[in-house]
Design a protein around this nucleic acid. Structure first.
Length: 422
RNA sequence: GGGAGAGUGUCCCGAGCGGCAAAGGGGGCGGACUGUAAAUCCGCUGGCUAUGCCUUCGUAGGUUCGAGUCCUACCUCUCCCA
């Protein structure tokens, strides 16, 4: 079905990762001829990456799997500037300490998808590389940089880029600081080419302009032939952006979003997205995915479970995925209480003294305030040990503790937390 | 430098004759229907030790019994003129 000759582009194309490619034939030939090096840049604006970043991570994964060398570039330097692409307002400036801290959390995630140091070290072409653009951006000299790099940029052209134009058209402020972002990103590409022979930059479709800038700069500064490959913007069938839930972003860090909640996130995928997501977010073979995608009606739930388990296994490991699946099965299909549900500890003496429902639900993190719990109760959405609560005066006592030593709190049908007195 | 306008419920957009916990959306949560889906319909969507109290409309003052609304200064952002 695909016209590509290289495994790398074929797999990306078949699995739905490709939105645009620059000079596809030339890139295909390079990837066919031997190992190439490509990179994706990641912001350090948060302490972890979320589901939205999973797509680019998977592209790096497939790159390595098809025999090429991926570079995960941490934006330690560029995050100090802030990418204006696709945003109406300036991002607030992060302190260097925050960036440094965020960088640590993000690094940890990559080790689950990429192999960094096998035998052979950096010389081994199959090893992924972790780079940080702060290493070269932070020590730039302004005047030198303007003369060496800035002279290749036309402001006329920069003004025409979507990331800039959007701001200008909407009459939103674009600071000079942000205006420089694309210059720095372009410089990253050249820098990675010089040091690692990197010829490909990948990213989301909103990065196209930034990437093309890097290609131009590479040609002008060092006469290199560089390539761009972007992925489509992933939204759900009903048009919502991915990765947002009640609790906020779906983080890839187990400390921020438990494997159980992560599993649940994928389990609740819309029907129309199942096949697409299986291709993008799992590494199952395509024929297996085709089989799952053919399931109709109620049977598609089986495909969703596979999606949830496979996606969870990639991020949190197989045992955690199995446990999350089992916990979900017990909770939803048997209506039983699984001890592996998210658990919050409380002091046993507080329970003995009688714990108010309002307090209990807020403590468990199921509600933000007492008022929220009250409203939930009046909406008939609150249950303790699967028994509906109708009064906000209800108290939980020692006799609510099950033989397993926990109290199950439920908000609605899907949100469950165990209270563990100790 | 001169002139005109804007900033609203800490998710977003947006109404708001001096009586306002503040219209309406979107989003989110809950309920019904289903399949832990979508669509649809319904409810909720400042806080509290709760028939009351406290905190919210860019910031700080002022007028008033009472201010999101009127006045003054300041901050930020737009637009027009120089």
């Amino acid at each position: 079905m695909s016209a590509y000759k290289s495994d790398f582009l074929n797999i990306l194309a078949e699995r739905g990762f490709i939105h645009q490619v620059s000079e596809p034939d030339a890139l295909d030939a390079r990837a066919k001829a031997g190992a190439i090096t490509g990179y994706i840049g990641f912001d350090c604006t948060a302490a972890s990456l979320h589901v939205g970043s999973l797509l680019p991570i998977m592209m790096l994964y497939w790159m390595q799997q098809t025999g090429h060398r991926p570079i995960a570039l941490m934006g330690g330097g560029t995050t100090r500037v802030g990418d204006p692409s696709g945003k109406d307002e300036s991002r607030r400036i992060l302190t260097d300490e925050m960036i440094e801290q965020n960088l640590k959390g993000i690094r940890a995630i990559f080790s689950k998808f990429l192999k960094f140091d096998g035998a052979g070290g950096n010389a081994d072409k199959s090893n992924a590389i972790m780079a940080n653009n702060a290493d070269w951006l932070n020590k730039l000299n302004y005047i030198d940089f303007l003369r060496d790099v800035g002279k290749h940029f036309s402001v006329n052209r920069m003004l025409a880029f979507d990331s800039v134009k959007l701001r200008l058209d909407r009459q939103q402020e674009l600071s000079f600081l942000e205006f420089n972002y694309m210059v720095l990103q372009a410089y990253d590409f050249v820098e990675l080419n010089k040091h690692h022979g990197c010829i490909l930059q990948m990213g989301g479709s909103d990065q196209w302009g930034n990437i093309v800038n890097g290609i131009d700069l590479g040609r002008r500064m060092i006469n290199a032939q560089l390539f761009a490959l972007t992925s489509p913007l992933i939204t759900t069938s009903s048009g919502a952006k991915m990765g947002k839930t009640a609790a906020g972003a779906v983080w890839l860090d187990a400390g921020l979003v438990s494997p159980y909640d992560y599993w649940q996130y994928w389990r609740n995928t819309e029907d129309g997205d199942v096949a697409r997501f299986l291709k993008l977010f799992t590494i199952l073979p395509l024929d297996e995915i085709a089989r799952l995608a053919a399931l109709k009606g109620q049977e598609i739930n089986e495909a969703k479970k596979v999606l949830a388990s496979e996606a969870t296994a990639l991020v949190h490991g197989r045992p955690a995925a199995i446990e999350a699946g089992e916990t979900s099965r017990k909770t939803f299909e048997e209506g039983a209480t699984s001890l592996a549900l998210p658990t919050v500890s409380v002091a046993r003496k507080d329970v003995a003294a009688g714990l108010g429902v309002l307090n209990a639900f807020v403590t468990a993190g199921l509600a933000a305030s007492n008022g929220e719990v009250r409203r939930a109760i009046s909406n008939n959405a609150v249950a303790v040990n699967d028994v509906r609560i109708t009064s906000d005066k209800h108290t939980i006592g020692e006799n609510d503790i099950s033989s397993d030593g926990v109290i199950k709190l439920s908000l609605g049908k899907k949100q469950h937390v165990l209270l563990k007195p100790s």
